[in-house]
Each structure stands twice: as C-alpha cells, then as structure tokens.
Simulated scan of single mutants.
Amino acid sequence: MRICLLTSRPGHPVLAAMTALLTPRHEVESIDPESQSDGSTGDPAAPGPLADVYLLKARTPRALALAGSFEERGIPVLNSAAATALCQDRTEMAGLARRAGLPFADTRTVVSLAGLADERDLPYPLVVKSRHSRRHDLVTRVDNAARLRALRSDWAQEPVVVQEFSANSGWDHKLWVIDGQVFAALRRSELAEGERGPTLPLELGELPHGWQDLARTVGSVFALEVYGVDVIDAGDGTPLIVDINAFPGIRGQKGAPEALAALALRAARRSGRRAR
C-alpha cells in the first residue's frame, strides 16, 4: 500500500512512529503542502502517482486545497478537507456541536475585538478567542474592561468568539480519538495562571462516566476519524467541551501509532477495492 502524509513535519513523533510500523512492507511518503502550487493554475495536486490514502496533518489553505484535489480523484483523505476546515472555524464548530446536543460552551461571534471592547455590561470573566483557529491565534481570559481594551492594540480587527468563563480546576482533559479508540491526558489550561507544564498521562478508567462515549460521538457529528476533544469538568463530572481539533499531535500515547497505522491501511485497502 502507498500511504502519503500531507504535512510539513513528517518527523512528528506520532507520524514517525506510524511510518516505522508500516515500512518496509508499505510505502510511506510525505508532501509538504506549502511547497505545492498556490492554486493559481486551478490544479493544486502534487505531481506523480496517486497514493492509496492521504493523511491530512496540516490545516493551511494550501493543505486543504491539496487534500480536496485528491478527494475529487476518489482517494480517501483522513480527515477530509471539509471536516478539517470546519474545525478551524470556531463559530461553525460551536453551532454544529450545540445543534447536535453536545455539551459545548455557549459561544457568540463578534465581528471584531474592537467591537467587543465597545460593548457595555459584559458578564466578566470572559473567554475570548480568535474565530479562526490557527497557530499563534488569540485565546485568553478577560476579567475586566481594562484588559479587553489592552487587547485592542494588537487584535482590534480580529474576528472573535466570546464565551462566559466556566469555573473549573484549571486542567483540560485532552481526549484523543483514532478510529474510535480513545486516549487521554491532562494538561493545564492555557487560561490558567502560571506555566502550563507537561502533559500528564491519564488512564481511561479515571475519566468520569460517559466521557469516552462523548468523545466518540464528537467524531460522528463532525465526520472525523483522527481528532482531539478538549473537555473541562464543570462540576461533579459534568463535561464541557471547549475545543475540537482535527488530527492533533497525540504525543506519548501508547498504542496511538498502531491505531493510526491500522486506520491508514484499512482506508487504503478500501480505496484499492474501489479502484478495482
């Protein structure tokens, strides 16, 4: 089977470990989407023979366009370009999650941070995030109007989403899912004071009842096969979803590379049967 990674970082630990498992019986290669055409020709696809499956571990516009070009040729992409793009828009993400009945933080969208700063009687503390998820985006807790005004110097025109801050332990439960198999860890929230520190292992048996099923349901709702769900305990084991990520890092999780390799091969075999 021919498996192709769409990423600028093929040496990422989980990808490198998966590649080691698959070779030499299978061919594993990578394409850096940022090195491909900018799409001005109307065809962003990379040259050369097609792979049996593509793993989309990139979220840039070029990466999504490249993945979409392979999907148009009938080749499976994990996760799909559409599902990956949906997780980049926090407004669309929250809307879909809440329509599906998932316990997602109540979210509203504001055209710009400057517009939010002009509002009166805001229910502080707030969580303010860039609407469009990307590296080095805005994610912060805002406790008062002075802090909000201070953000205007760098983020005035940034489209944002706003959530009321929910009191919690300051720890995010990182739930990762690969083809229905759940992995878990704890990490200090980026909204908590002080350094975030390392990600701590968490046995599945330590999760509150129903959280594993909740994580799997997210995949069904968002059409994701490799994804992460950030959950906080809002009290007495009540889950509150604060973020959903397509193809996260899943570092240091025993069994994750094996699960990813098995998923890739199964998708590649399905692709081969369709071609025949």
Rank of each mutant, 00 (worst) to 15 (best):
M1P: 13
C4K: 05
L5N: 03
T7L: 05
T7C: 02
S8L: 13
H12M: 14
V14P: 01
M18Y: 03
M18P: 05
M18R: 07
A20M: 02
A20R: 13
T23K: 09
H26I: 00
E27H: 15
E29V: 15
I31V: 15
P33M: 05
S35P: 03
D38V: 06
S40N: 01
D43W: 15
P47G: 07
A51K: 05
Y54G: 05
R62A: 13
L64M: 08
S69E: 05
F70A: 13
E71A: 06
R73P: 12
I75W: 13
A81H: 13
A83F: 00
D89Q: 14
M93I: 12
G95W: 15
A100W: 05
G101W: 09
G101N: 05
P103G: 10
F104R: 07
V111C: 10
S112V: 04
A114W: 12
A117K: 00
D118T: 13
R120P: 12
R120I: 11
L122E: 05
L122C: 04
L126T: 02
L126E: 02
V128M: 03
S130E: 09
H132A: 13
D137E: 05
R141V: 06
D143L: 05
D143W: 05
N144F: 03
A150T: 10
R152V: 14
R152G: 03
D154N: 05
Q157F: 06
V162N: 12
V162W: 10
V162I: 13
E164I: 09
F165G: 11
S166E: 15
N168C: 11
N168H: 14
N168T: 03
D172C: 04
H173S: 13
H173F: 08
K174L: 07
L175Y: 08
W176S: 09
D179V: 01
Q181R: 14
Q181M: 10
F183R: 07
A185N: 10
T199K: 10
L207I: 06
P208D: 10
W211N: 01
W211M: 02
D213W: 07
V218P: 01
G219A: 04
S220E: 15
F222V: 03
V229W: 14
D230W: 07
V231Y: 09
I232K: 06
D236P: 12
P239Q: 07
N245V: 04
A246L: 08
F247S: 09
P248F: 00
G249K: 00
I250F: 04
Q253G: 02
K254V: 00
E258S: 14
E258N: 04
A262M: 07
A264Q: 01
A264K: 01
G272R: 14
R273N: 06
